[in-house]
Design a protein around this nucleic acid. Structure first.
Lengths: 162, 162
DNA sequence: CGTCCATCGTTCGTACACAAACAATTCAAA
DNA sequence: TTTGAATTGTTTGTGTACGAACGATGGACG
């Protein structure tokens, strides 16, 4: 894991200083997975924002809409798990979608803890339209890669996002 | 019950329904780059948080610290560009690092718009310690991949984060 | 010399992201 | 059957993320 120098008995101050120096410039931020993942994600959301501008949907609102259209209905927490959002984040996302009239929320008669979410008619329309754009956005995001690189990347990325 | 006859002029209700179904499930959220990038990034920050817990550094605070230790000194906007943060985000990150006494800020005598950032002694120490952990975190993040897959992934990811 | 334009840092508003604590409810095990 | 653990949704607090507008400064141009 962290760099360890080969086992030697004693090290001079010089050697220690040199090692420390090497260690300092050795770690390059722009080559680290985390930083690159963040930047790739930044680029993707920029593309997303641009293509989804006229629908005024954020990536998370989009995800919730699409997923809800898949499963028909779901409780808040359940939809959150399906879209990889925690309950607190879901709170805000759903609130805004309800305010826009794309989603409806009603209590579950069988379990009074639950709130059942469904799409409104308008929500269904927007979801359909958005899914089309979603496809374009994915293509644009992967544009810098050739066909086979694209497949390879998606396969590997899938293993880092279990 | 629905018998599927090959190529016919008219389509049965069954067939139309099946097509619609196929179309609906055609766009699968969990297979889209954006969603997977987001989840991979989530996983990485979880690993980061865990390993960096005792230093109490967030990924962005870490990035600013490391980069500033690389370049010695920088204006806020400049450091922001080096770490891929916009000016508004930088504001908060720097504010918290100054509050913790890891960074110092003083006006640039040559350009009165600029604020020059430098590490404090403690900031330098923390940066050094954090860089070590940074290695571990990168390794852990890429752990699900084998050696050659790791290299391939980083190469491809680099093209999506220009 | 003045004017226009870019850059610097700041603030405001919106939207994630998630830990932590909470009340209400459900469910399982003693 | 009653106690206790787990689940559901909510709120609070901290920290990104970024568009948009702002005042102050600097530099290039005619």
């Amino acid at each position: 894991m962290a760099r360890r120098s080969a086992g030697q008995a004693k090290k001079s101050v010089e050697e220690l200083r040199e090692e420390a120096e090497a260690l300092r410039t050795d770690y390059r931020l722009e080559e680290q997975v985390g930083h690159m993942l963040r930047r790739a994600h930044q680029r993707h959301t920029a593309i997303f924002q641009e293509r989804m501008a006229h629908l005024q949907l954020t990536p998370l609102q989009f995800a919730a809409l699409i997923k809800l259209s898949d499963v028909g209905m779901a409780s808040q927490n359940h939809l959150g798990r399906l879209t990889a959002m925690d309950a607190a984040t879901m709170q805000g996302v759903i609130k805004r979608l309800i305010a826009r009239g794309l989603i409806e929320r009603r209590p579950d008669p069988d379990d009074r803890r639950r709130l059942i979410l469904t799409l409104t008619t308008e929500g269904r329309e927007i979801a359909r339209e958005a899914a089309d754009l979603g496809y374009d956005i994915s293509v644009l995001t992967l544009e810098p890669l050739g066909e086979s690189d694209r497949k390879a990347f998606m396969r590997l990325l899938g293993r880092l996002a279990p």
